[in-house]
Design a protein around this nucleic acid. Structure first.
Lengths: 199, 199
DNA sequence: TTATTAACTGACCGGTCGACCAGTTAACTG
DNA sequence: CAGTTAACTGGTCGACCGGTCAGTTAATAA
C-alpha cells in the first residue's frame, strides 16, 4: 500500500492551476492577485513562482488549459465523417451550443483574451474555422446550403452567436419576453437554417 | 473678447473623463490606475478625486458617457415611423452595424461590463430591445417576416452578431478566407433576412 | 475691497502588488 | 548511507495602489 506522500508536486501544480483558472475566469488577469490564488489553492505565494515562474506564465497556462479542451472537442466533432444532411448539420450546431453552455469558463476566457487583444487563441480557432468552413462548402456542393455566401462567414455567424449568447447572459437575461437557452437556440436554428436553404 | 481663463473646471472635468474613457476602454477597470489617467489628462491625481470622488465613480461616469450616445442614437432610430418594407428593415441593420463600426469604444465597454456582471447596461438595453421587438412584431403582422419565431430572439440574434463581430475582431481578423466588414455584413443580411422570410 | 467658494497642488497614508531570496525539508540517486 | 535535487517556507524588497488632507490660488459674490 502506498504511504501518503508528504509532497506531490503534480498535485500542487494542478491545484494552483485550477484555482488560477477559476479566478482568472471570474475577474480577468488584472483583477486577480497571486495572493488570492495562493490562498484559494492552499499553497504559499512563493510556490506559485516556483512552479510557474510569473503571473503572466500562470495566465498563459490557464488559457492553454481551457483552450485545449475546447480545441480537442471541436476538432473531434469536425473530423467525423462529413455531415450529409440538414439534420446532422443542425445537430452540430446544437452540440456546439451545449458545449459552450456546459463550459461557460471557456467562453469567459475567450472574452477576456479578446479584450486583451491576444491573437493566439484567434489563431488557435483559425484551424477549427477552416475545418468548419470546409463542411459548409461540402454542404453547398451537395446542394444542402445555398452557395452564394462565404462559408467562413456562415461559420463565423454561427460561432459568434453562440458565444455571445452566453457571454452576454447578464445583459439579456432580464430582457422582457426573452426565452430560455433552448427556446433561443430553436429560434436561431430556425432562422439560420432556413436562411441557408438553396432557393 | 474673453481673456484666456486660468481655470476651467468644465474643461478639466471633460479632459479627465476623456482620458479615463480611453484608458478604461483599452484596459478595463482593474487594468487602469488613477495615476495613469491623471498623467494622460494632464491633471493631478487629487483633482480626479475632487471632480469625481473615486475611481468607481469615474468608471460609472465613463460608462454613462458611452451608453448615453448609444442609447440616444438607437432610440432615435427605433422611434422613427414603423419600417414598412424589407429594404427599410435591412437599412436598420446596416445602420446599426455601422454605428458599432464607428464607435468601437462602445462595443469594448459593453464587453467589459458584461464580464463584470454589470446588469445596469443590460437594463439600459432592455428598452431598446423592447422597441426593436415591437418593430419585428409589426413586420410579422404585416407579413414581411415569418411569425413563428420570438421577436425578441430575432433582435437578440442581430444585435449579438453585430456586437461580436467587432468585439472578436482580433480573433477572426486572421482567419483565412474571411471577408471585410462589408462583405460579412452582406452575407449576414442575406442569410438573416432570407431566414426571416415567410414561407 | 473683502469674504467666500471652489479649483487645484503636493505630500503623505496604510495597504497591496509581483518578485525575489536565503534557508529548510523531503524525495530521489548512486 | 551520503549527496544531490527540487519542493516548499517565511520574510523582505521597491513599486505602486486608491484615498486623504492641509494648504495655496484663482474666480466670484457681497
Amino acid at each position: 500500500m502506498n504511504e501518503p506522500q508528504h509532497r506531490d508536486p503534480d498535485l500542487t501544480r494542478s491545484r494552483i492551476l485550477d484555482a488560477a483558472f477559476e479566478l482568472f475566469v471570474e475577474k480577468g488577469f488584472a483583477g486577480v492577485s497571486l495572493r488570492e490564488i495562493a490562498q484559494q489553492s492552499g499553497v504559499t505565494k512563493s510556490l506559485i513562482h516556483h512552479h510557474f515562474g510569473s503571473k503572466n506564465a500562470l495566465w498563459e497556462a490557464a488559457k492553454e488549459k481551457a483552450f485545449a479542451l475546447y480545441t480537442e472537442v471541436q476538432r473531434e466533432e469536425l473530423e467525423q465523417a462529413p455531415l450529409a444532411d440538414q439534420a446532422l448539420l443542425k445537430g452540430g450546431i446544437v452540440r456546439y451550443f451545449h458545449f459552450l453552455k456546459d463550459n461557460p469558463q471557456v467562453v469567459r476566457l475567450f472574452a477576456w483574451t479578446q479584450l486583451e487583444g491576444d491573437q493566439s487563441c484567434g489563431d488557435m480557432n483559425a484551424e477549427l474555422v477552416r475545418l468548419g468552413a470546409d463542411r459548409v462548402r461540402q454542404a453547398q456542393q451537395a446542394g444542402i446550403f445555398r452557395d452564394d455566401v462565404n462559408p467562413v462567414h456562415v461559420v463565423t455567424t454561427f460561432v459568434m452567436t453562440c458565444m455571445q449568447w452566453f457571454e452576454a447572459r447578464c445583459h439579456h437575461g432580464q430582457w422582457q419576453g426573452i426565452g430560455s437557452d433552448e427556446e433561443f437556440l430553436d429560434d436561431f436554428i430556425e432562422i439560420f437554417m432556413r436562411g441557408l436553404e438553396p432557393r
